[in-house]
């Protein structure tokens, strides 16, 4: 793939690959580390070809231990490196939880600002791929609750290409949630300019009756729901969150001020979730603009079910439209 091309149709996995390649080329301190990311290119092939290009010292196949991956990345960051860790699947991040929440997130504060922690943790997350247990989860809320971390999630190949580079350039720890069901659909990538800053949310479809907010793979579901609603005479606006921590409330509040209705959707279980936080904040800040209570559409508060039942667990366009109908009924 040539960076001469300014617009290309790429799947997100290849856009991420291009973004990582660019980051490795731009800064010799950038390192990739994770399980199977070398010759195999990662289980999703996101790092394909990068070890051959940049060597084993910069694209590191690590031992199989998530705490070890994050803990050694912290040491490398203390030494001035910018490690990008790949966690193989969402449900495998928990062995690294202590290093992420008690160490990575707090070390800059503990050290009085004497050093930064520019570590990126890439987490392929979410369902829709029919996989076995621990391979379809959405653990964002655990980390969004932790001060010191930043969380982002691209929904398009273009955002993936730019946001991974912006995350790597950040001097703070960034958890980068990659919607694995969106790895393969192609989309345009503009190699000349980023669509928005790393922590900006963005209105991706305009409408006048109800605002839908989501991130990652949910954005395409929301756009699909908006299309159906249009046919039914309901004008739907869609906001792509892009950043889960901090949340950029500007476009959300601006949108809700106009539409008066908000539905927040996510694959994660709803109890104490990012969606709950957004619902509470919008209720506080846009109370007099609201025509209806803020509604949430989430995965059920159960373990992610066996894959043959995942379509019932995961919010789809119909579940979103059901909430839209309820919001419109007020």
């Amino acid at each position: 793939m040539s960076t001469e091309t300014t617009l290309d149709e790429l799947p997100m996995a290849k856009a991420l690959n291009a973004g990582l390649r660019q980051a490795l080329a731009d800064d010799p301190k950038v390192l990739l580390m994770g399980e199977d990311i070398g010759p195999l290119g990662g289980v999703f092939r996101v790092t394909e070809g990068l070890q051959a290009e940049f060597g084993k010292e910069r694209v590191v196949d690590t031992p199989l231990a998530e705490s070890g991956i994050i803990g050694t990345a912290i040491g490398l960051a203390l030494r001035g490196y910018r490690p990008v860790c790949e966690i193989q699947f969402d449900g495998f991040i928990y062995p690294g939880f202590d290093q992420i929440t008690s160490q990575l997130a707090k070390l800059t504060n503990r050290g009085g600002g004497a050093f930064s922690m520019p570590v990126v943790i890439r987490v392929p997350y979410g369902g829709h791929i029919g996989a076995v247990e621990h391979h379809q989860e959405s653990p964002e809320a655990y980390f969004a609750h932790t001060p010191g971390l930043r969380l982002v999630s691209p929904s398009t190949p273009n955002d993936a290409y730019w946001m991974i580079q912006e995350a790597i350039a950040s001097n703070d720890p960034v958890m980068f949630f990659e919607p694995k069901s969106r790895y393969w659909p192609k989309g345009p990538v503009d190699f000349t300019a980023s669509a928005a800053p790393l922590h900006a949310s963005r209105i991706v479809r305009t409408g006048t009756d109800v605002t839908l907010v989501g991130h990652g793979a949910m954005v395409s579901v929301l756009l699909q729901a908006a299309e159906v609603a249009q046919g039914e005479g309901v004008s739907v606006e869609v906001v792509d969150l892009r950043s889960l921590s901090p949340v950029d409330y500007g476009p959300i509040l601006e949108s809700v001020t106009r539409t008066g209705r908000l539905v927040v959707a996510q694959e994660a279980s709803g109890f104490v979730s990012v969606g709950s936080e957004i619902a509470a904040t919008v209720a506080e800040r846009a109370f007099y603009s609201l025509q209806a209570p803020v509604l949430r559409v989430s995965g059920f508060d159960t373990p992610f079910p066996p894959a043959k039942l995942e379509t019932l667990f995961l919010p789809d366009a119909d579940r979103v439209l059901e909430a839209v109908d309820r919001a419109m009924a007020y």
Binding site: I70, G71, A73, I74, G75, L76, Q99, S102
Partner: peptide, 21 residues
């Protein structure tokens, strides 16, 4: 470091950095 043993990994990562330097 008050979380017992956590820093053993930081020390290891730091040493990985020294190798690269």
């Amino acid at each position: 470091c008050l979380v017992i043993g956590s820093h053993s990994l930081h020390a290891t990562g730091y040493a990985m950095g020294l190798q690269r330097d």
